[in-house]
């Protein structure tokens, strides 16, 4: 992987508040165009990482680089290449949607380049997030889901090379969530935008991510695609079938051969055969629990 292919590089990232250690040596990198999802329990440090990379927060140690610059000391030209999806709740409520996007777009005009035109036109943005019919509304009149889509539009107005989203779908209903996921897919596919997104929704992580980082206790405890994580951390498979109106379940690591034997032994009478692989949720629980156990063991030894 050459250097220019890396959008984000984090090495030995540390964050402490007095005695409280929030991040304890975090390393990872994100390729250009990759969708990376940060997953972890509350308080694991997801928001802290994102805020450090956005340039909104200093760090206690380690290095961080986004598009080749240290976010803590980056200039306004860097700022123009980075998009941030903030969660609005009351700000700019008197502005009308179109006017706000128009106005925010103007900040990016001076940073337009041949490869990346800035800003993105307001009509394109409105269409992308599905707010065309609400463009004349005041921001304060939008529903929660529409508001969040506006947040995404604002994050995209500068045609960013890297986009940060911190728990973007909290409080979404299923329909809004689906629509939001569609927007993210379109972005990653069409524009090659690098996306770093945090969530504690496993289903969402699985749907959106090229790769998942699981964060627990201030460290990265797993790093891989949803498939890899599933296989690596939970190799249990369930074979479920019905025989003589009776439902049977077999759990083990040998699903394929077990099923082959089962069908060989009972050439007739087996119905509803189903092989269920461990879900990402199983893997996640294994990872987080293992991490918590080792930590409490360590603390036990120290005490």
């Amino acid at each position: 992987m050459s250097k220019t292919d890396t959008a984000i590089q984090v090495t030995g990232l540390q964050m402490r508040y007095g005695d409280l250690v929030v991040l304890n040596g975090v390393d990872f990198s994100v390729r250009r165009g990759e969708v990376l999802v940060l997953l972890g329990p509350n308080g694991a440090g997801k928001t802290t990482i994102i805020e450090i990379l956005e340039g909104f927060r200093g760090r206690s140690g380690g290095s961080a680089s986004v598009l080749g610059s240290d976010p803590e000391h980056a200039d306004e030209a860097w700022r123009a290449r980075v998009g941030i999806v903030l969660q609005s709740w009351r700000d700019h409520s008197a502005w009308r949607v179109r006017k706000l996007l128009d106005h925010f777009g103007k900040y990016f005009g001076p940073y337009s380049t041949d490869e990346r035109a800035r800003p993105v036109g307001t009509d394109t943005l409105l269409q992308l997030v599905g707010l065309t019919d609400h463009a004349h509304k005041k921001v304060g009149e939008l529903s929660g889901g529409m508001r969040r889509r506006l947040d995404v539009a604002i994050g995209l107005v500068g045609n960013p090379e890297v986009l940060f989203l911190d728990e973007p779908t909290v409080g979404f209903d299923p329909k809004a969530r689906r629509e939001f996921h569609d927007v993210i897919h379109r972005l990653a596919d069409l524009q090659g935008t690098t996306i770093l997104l945090s969530t504690h929704d496993l289903d969402e992580a699985e749907k959106l991510s090229d790769r998942i980082l699981i964060l627990a206790g201030g460290k990265i405890v797993a790093n891989g695609s949803a498939d890899q994580l599933r296989k690596e951390f939970s190799d249990q498979t369930e074979v479920i079938w019905t025989q003589d109106d009776q439902r049977h379940v077999h759990a083990g690591r040998d699903a394929t051969s077990f099923a082959r034997n089962l069908l060989a032994q009972h050439p007739e009478g087996i119905t509803n055969l189903e092989i269920r692989h461990a879900s990402l949720e199983d893997a996640y629980m294994t990872i987080v629990q293992t991490q918590e156990t080792t930590r409490s063991q360590k603390e036990g030894k120290q005490a």
Binding site: E76, A77, R79, I84, L86, S88, D91, Y107, F108, G158
Partner: peptide, 20 residues
């Protein structure tokens, strides 16, 4: 107010947003 409701943060997320 601008700090609490995120107006300031939005300005910070824009290039040259804070002086403007």
């Amino acid at each position: 107010f601008d700090r609490e409701d995120g107006t300031l943060l939005r300005a910070k997320a824009l290039p040259q947003g804070m002086p403007a």
